[in-house]
Simulated assay, not measured.
Amino acid sequence: MSLLELFIIAVGLSMDAFAVAICKGLCLRKINFKKAGTVGLYFGLFQAGMPLIGYFLGVQFQNKITSIDHWISFFLLAIIGINMIRESIESKNEVGIECAVDENINDETLAFKNMIGLAIATSIDALAVGVTFAFLKVNILSAVSFIGIVTFTLSMVGVKIGNVFGTIYKSKAEFAGGLILILMGLKILLEHLGMINF
């Protein structure tokens, strides 16, 4: 897998975290590097950790299903992508967002009990992508580091965007992320079937 392909997957995976980070930015009255970094760190660490777990799970079955691994990769990425697109369409109909705002640095919205659930929820998709990495024989340490850094960066940007612009970009980010993952899954499938060669 090329660096460009890995970057595209990393961006696609991070769109859920980016969308939630926008909501977090909306909830915070004052933004500083520490607050944005806290959000980025939660999402970046979990987005990097989940593919690692998925990879080790996938390695256990890799030799048994090599003849259909490209189909599994395609279906996993397509299902994740379709789900993200569905969520983006549904979120357009939502009004408002629940926020617990505090003027202090220890905003309730950034408390461990709030952030840990969001970090897990936004990174579950990455677990399945980690399984596909095992089938594609990706260098997993480089891949998860790259995904973590991209997610960390985009989450910090998302906090700032949410603070300035509100939730206008939330559903667009989820839709784009879903579309990217579907296209990457399709590319993997067509390459293995010999229909395209990039």
Rank of each mutant, 00 (worst) to 15 (best):
residue 16 D to S: 10
residue 129 V to W: 05
residue 101 V to K: 10
residue 88 S to A: 02
residue 184 M to K: 09
residue 151 T to L: 04
residue 148 G to L: 05
residue 151 T to S: 13
residue 111 A to E: 14
residue 26 L to P: 00
residue 114 N to I: 14
residue 181 L to V: 09
residue 179 L to W: 04
residue 151 T to I: 08
residue 92 K to V: 12
residue 65 I to M: 03
residue 135 F to K: 05
residue 15 M to F: 13
residue 52 L to S: 07
residue 161 I to S: 08
residue 179 L to E: 01
residue 91 S to P: 10
residue 106 N to P: 07
residue 198 F to S: 14
residue 85 I to W: 02
residue 59 V to M: 10
residue 174 E to M: 14
residue 73 S to C: 07
residue 107 D to L: 06
residue 6 L to C: 07
residue 123 S to D: 02
residue 152 F to N: 09
residue 78 A to G: 01
residue 137 K to L: 09
residue 159 V to T: 11
residue 125 D to N: 15
residue 167 T to K: 13
residue 193 L to M: 15
residue 124 I to S: 11
residue 114 N to M: 13
residue 56 F to S: 10
residue 49 G to P: 12
residue 183 L to P: 01
residue 10 A to C: 11
residue 38 T to P: 02
residue 82 I to T: 09
residue 6 L to I: 13
residue 78 A to V: 07
residue 172 K to C: 03
residue 173 A to L: 12
residue 172 K to P: 07
residue 58 G to T: 03
residue 158 G to P: 04
residue 76 L to K: 02
residue 60 Q to V: 13
residue 105 I to C: 00
residue 189 L to R: 09
residue 53 I to V: 15
residue 55 Y to M: 05
residue 183 L to K: 01
residue 73 S to P: 04
residue 112 F to E: 08
residue 63 N to K: 14
residue 149 I to K: 05
residue 162 G to S: 09
